[in-house]
Design a protein around this nucleic acid. Structure first.
Lengths: 131, 131
DNA sequence: CTTGACCTTCCTGCTGCCGGAAGGTTTAGT
DNA sequence: ACTAAACCTTCCGGCAGCAGGAAGGTCAAG
């Protein structure tokens, strides 16, 4: 199957599929004319990658996940470990964002937000303590 | 004041300060020898940028915030509007991450995580419904 | 007078692709 | 048989927001 069909079936853009090949995640066969030819296993990998990326795993994580996926003698603990580490990173990110959010909320609440120039938000950014 | 002192005082890396100049956020004077010379207003801007970036505002947001900061006839409502839009984006990001997190949690919980190869996480990524 | 700590510009690379140009191939329609 | 559209290929450049490093000029101390 051609790349555009693989794109449709996997849910990935054509550009992304070529990129994944470039960085060695997949390796479809080539036809006589140079066209890439995707078989069922290739399509499975692409779909796998689409799901994994959608869950926020980095490309390098995906590389490891794919190799575990291919390795029939893998230990599920390895996969679980990777997933847990990923969740930890997500939690950290959520924490940072919530912290930012609460700071911003306070600043926004303290700003009357009318046509006057006086603005506690800018004052804070400028380093003037609101006291 | 030289760039390294400005870096120390503002809390920004030297590389970042030069980058901010390159994209037109600041414009320090130059000495005879070509060295950048930062005055008090420059330092205020840098500190302002450090704070704003720390609150997650994009460079382009910072550009607008800086211009509002400089504009003594600004309306505080403009600043508040920008900040609110930023919070909205943060909330959206938090929502996405929490969604990812809960999906991952379920997958992790369903994986026994021992030396066996059977792994619901990989099965899910491969598109096999757990059913 | 040399050493070392500054400073300058310029170039490359990171993540994860997207857009587009230039050109070959295949297919559908007339 | 010929053409136009719709594929496909590779390569180049760019996005955010810098970081690292090379090559070279400058300055203050010993």
């Amino acid at each position: 199957m051609n790349i555009s069909q693989a794109a449709t079936d996997s849910g990935l853009p054509v550009k992304t599929i070529r990129y994944y090949e470039e960085i060695g995640l997949i390796a479809p066969k080539r036809r006589e004319n140079g066209y890439r030819d995707y078989g069922a296993p290739d399509l499975h990998k692409l779909t796998f990658l689409q799901r994994a990326r959608g869950l926020g795993f980095s490309i390098e994580d995906c590389r490891v996940l794919l190799s575990l996926y291919e390795d029939k003698g893998r230990a599920s603990s390895d996969v679980k470990k990777l997933a847990k580490a990923h969740v930890t990173q997500i939690d950290q990110k959520i924490g940072e964002l919530q912290s930012l959010r609460s700071t911003l909320d306070q600043l926004i609440a303290s700003c009357h937000g009318d046509t006057r120039a006086d603005c506690p938000i800018l004052d804070d950014l400028a380093g003037k303590s609101v006291s």
